[in-house]
Amino acid sequence: MAKVVDARGLSCPEPILLTKEAMNEVGSGSFEVLVDNQTQCFNVIRICKSSGWNAQVTPEGSDFRITVSK
């Protein structure tokens, strides 16, 4: 099963720190990040793009599941 980073309810910049950390850990392949608001969703996607990873968002209730892959 793919690694899931649960960043829901965390303040800036924790979701992007966790995402960066997961990138280093995974190296290549994919993992998922859960966030609970648009701002963090937007931040995680921006960090993915600037780090050369793809990000795909699926809304899940009031949360967002971001699939990060390279």
Partner: peptide, 8 residues
């Protein structure tokens, strides 16, 4: 913060 921490 972001400029220092993650070069964003």
């Amino acid at each position: 913060r972001d400029a220092i921490l993650v070069k964003d």
